[in-house]
Design a protein around this nucleic acid. Sequence first.
DNA 1: TTGAAAGCGCTAACAG
DNA 2: CTGTTAGCGCTTTCAA
Lengths: 338, 338
Amino acid sequence: MTILDRWGEGVTATIYDVARHAGVSVATVSRVLNGLKVREDLVERVRETVLRLNYTPSRTAQRMRKSTSHLWALIVPDFENAFFTRVARGVEEICQPRDTCVFIGSSDDDPEKERRYLEVALAERVGGVVITPSSDTTDLTRIVSAGIPVVVVDRAVPNGAYDTILTDNMAGGRLGAEHLLGQNLRTVACVVGPENPTSQARLEGFLSAAKASPAIDIVRIERGNNRLDGGYRAMQRIIQSEARFDAVFVTNNLMAVGIIKALGDMLPERRNDIPVVGFDLDEIPLLSGACIASINQDPHEIGRIAGERILLQQAGTPPVCSIALRPTLVATAGLGYP
Amino acid sequence: MTILDRWGEGVTATIYDVARHAGVSVATVSRVLNGLKVREDLVERVRETVLRLNYTPSRTAQRMRKSTSHLWALIVPDFENAFFTRVARGVEEICQPRDTCVFIGSSDDDPEKERRYLEVALAERVGGVVITPSSDTTDLTRIVSAGIPVVVVDRAVPNGAYDTILTDNMAGGRLGAEHLLGQNLRTVACVVGPENPTSQARLEGFLSAAKASPAIDIVRIERGNNRLDGGYRAMQRIIQSEARFDAVFVTNNLMAVGIIKALGDMLPERRNDIPVVGFDLDEIPLLSGACIASINQDPHEIGRIAGERILLQQAGTPPVCSIALRPTLVATAGLGYP
DNA sequence: TTGAAAGCGCTAACAG
DNA sequence: CTGTTAGCGCTTTCAA
């Protein structure tokens, strides 16, 4: 009974089936498949048989023999966040030509969920892990000691010797302050995210550049939860404090949406006259009439570089590189459509 | 030389290492790991050794023996599109408790790229494939004949006998028309996507319900490319035609953004007085002052159901189910924040 | 219960 | 240049 007789039963041809049908040895089939030197007529026969039997080599079996894996893991806090899907795109751009796929796990900033995904990555013996750690306690040592390349993106691991790719957030904050100074806007309210390194660096950068002369007068600093409602409520508090301000600086994109909404609700007459400077504001300017400047990261590039570092590590380069990408500032005029 | 001597060289303990260190056979280790009956003290010894050696069973090897795979494939036209990341979430919700992961491929509506991802899914012998086909020519027969469960989502495959989960787009169109009728808006311009089943069904549904009495007067139907610029240009053409209209119906979310932008640019004084009815408008109403009604699909639910159908197929249920989810309409008032 | 041993599908020596 | 064969790490008979 050959593979052809078992057709339709949910079976797949194996390399033995191909060998038998083509009248050669499995080694020859393997060689043809891997492009090694084989007599021309045998190559022909094998190729024909592969097609006829619909043979697809099992990567699972391949992985057992070779040490390389065509599967990578990407573990991010939230794959519904456009920032991370763009990172994924960047990684994909590196994988795709190498016939490699990425499985994506969303840790939802839950260390336990993240741990499970790391466990899976290890169990699958993936070819590489690209991760945005959910917290400072993320343990990558097991992955590393299994010899799996790791690249950390977007957030650094404190005193971890990993390849790290992130945005120079302090430079981003400075960029924001310089923009406001250039526009002669000197009375500014700030909305800052939770006390994590990212928010802190953005704020610090802003504060340091705000100390120009003449300096920016920071009338108020409010904290928010990096989500829409946090931005809304922070803006509410600022407005209720009756502080005078002629621009807002915010360290996160979702909070910016909440801020714009709050301005529209509470100060409708000034709604479009208060510039908002924030991070990764993307298409917001298109929809709101507000005057907006966006300090943009380049997640796609972050993903690409991460992918390239994985490849380098696979080739033996030790993971000792830390790359900080400079963000760029785009003001409304440059974003409008068309 | 044991595994402990080779530490730090990028090696992983195998089941043999555990067996040797625990002084039992590999069969016993396997049994402990799989929760079969084993003498209590041996269980203890094995457990302890597993921890000490940092042993993680290789899923690759497991997959070679068992037929089940803890890896599924999700192939979508664009994983940067929030609709599909939400589908992914839904699928993940089903996978996660079963320790299963999803690798995501973006076909970018390119049949060749899609074919490659399907090839990978086959080569990896995944446990299931959830796919939004890029075109009518998508070939799923090889996957199926390999015995891999397949669920088609969002777009149906013509005369394909696959489990299919999608939105009742015709009902969505009807919902839009009924909403406008209820608001007494009877002079409407339509912007419709490319001639694919989705756009067509949405338009047909709209047209059929528009034939109420008194009927909706459809002053113009423009086609667009389902992207932002397509919506913008379609709206431009409508405005330039000088047709009178007091509402817009649009079959796609990105085009809605373009439309709102065009209204703002070309009819600033009426910008917030022309209601726009579209699909999956999500947070757009938050940002634009426009009056908006959104006909919402439930991508998360689509993903969940797809995941469940995969499980059922794995358990032997034949794939013969086609589910059309009813969308729901939400008007601006209900979407505002907070 | 436990252990020995036969594969799962493939690659890579090693012989011929 | 081709074929035979020994594993990769695991599960699962089959005996003991």
